[in-house]
Simulated assay, not measured.
Amino acid sequence: MENDLLGQPAQMEKLIREICSKIKSEGRKVLKDFDISPAQFDVMQIIYFRGPKMLSDISKRLGITKSTTTGIVSRLETMGYLTKEKSPEDRRVYMVNITQKGKNIIEEVIETRVKLIEKVYNKLGDKVRTIEILNEINKIMNETKLS
């Protein structure tokens, strides 16, 4: 019986990972229409959801080198999805921001993901309880220190 209980967190992690992967995969189908790589999209998402960022912040967040980040940002800037401007506080630092064209792609991906979730949601039995459970999981995860 104890082994069954120890396996439940692992099973929960696996289910959440699979669900997230399916949602992410569905949204990324939109990117094919714009010739944007998953790495480029990740950079755009960071800026869309967290506001303008320095190149070094983006690099740290994604766990990639600053030179790789610079290349991604330069390409997205050329494509009109991002802008790069000198920081008013420190002229040696560039801040990366998302353009309306970039925001439109993010919003289209979100809309695609929401449509998938809507299909799933409509098939659920106890919709209210499902949302309550997801909110509780999110709340606990936000409150829990992992290290």
Rank of each mutant, 00 (worst) to 15 (best):
F49W: 13
K103H: 02
K86R: 15
S21I: 04
N97R: 12
R113V: 02
E18Q: 13
Y121I: 00
N104V: 07
Q11S: 12
V109A: 04
K84V: 05
P9F: 14
G71S: 13
L146K: 10
A10G: 03
G125F: 08
L15T: 12
D4R: 15
I133G: 08
V109S: 01
M79Q: 15
E111W: 02
G7Y: 06
T112W: 00
I133A: 12
R17Q: 11
G125W: 07
D42F: 07
G125C: 09
T99K: 05
R75W: 05
D57Y: 08
K29C: 02
R75C: 00
V43K: 02
G51M: 09
I140M: 08
I98E: 02
M95W: 10
G125V: 06
N138S: 14
L124K: 01
K32G: 00
I23G: 01
F34Y: 14
I16H: 09
E111A: 10
E132P: 01
E118K: 05
T65G: 09
I36R: 05
C20V: 10
P88C: 05
M141C: 06
I46C: 09
K22I: 06
K86P: 12
T83I: 11
K145F: 11
F41V: 01
Q100L: 10
E13A: 13
I117Q: 11
G63V: 05
G27L: 00
G71N: 14
N135A: 10
I36D: 01
K115N: 06
K29V: 01
L124G: 02
I117C: 08
M141R: 14
E2P: 03
L55M: 11
R91G: 06
R17G: 09
T130E: 10
T69R: 05
M12I: 15
I110E: 14
E143N: 11
Q11D: 12
L55Q: 15
D33T: 01
L116Q: 04
I58Y: 03
E26K: 02
N142G: 13
E107C: 03
I117E: 09
K60G: 13
M54G: 08
L76F: 02
K86C: 06
M12W: 15
R50T: 13
Q100P: 01
D33K: 11
D42T: 10
L124V: 07
K24Y: 12
F41G: 00
K101H: 00
E26T: 05
I98L: 08
F34R: 09
S37T: 15
I133V: 15
Y48D: 00
E108T: 03
A10T: 13
M95L: 15
R91D: 06
N122W: 06
V73L: 08
N135P: 00
M95K: 12
E136L: 13
L62F: 08
G125S: 12
K24T: 07
T78Q: 12
N97M: 03
T130D: 09
N97W: 04
K145E: 03
K53Y: 06
V73R: 08
G27K: 01
A10R: 10
V96C: 10
V30E: 08
D33V: 00
V30T: 12
M54N: 09
T83G: 02
M1K: 12
S56V: 11
S87G: 07
S74L: 09
E13H: 15
Y81M: 07
I36M: 01
T68F: 05
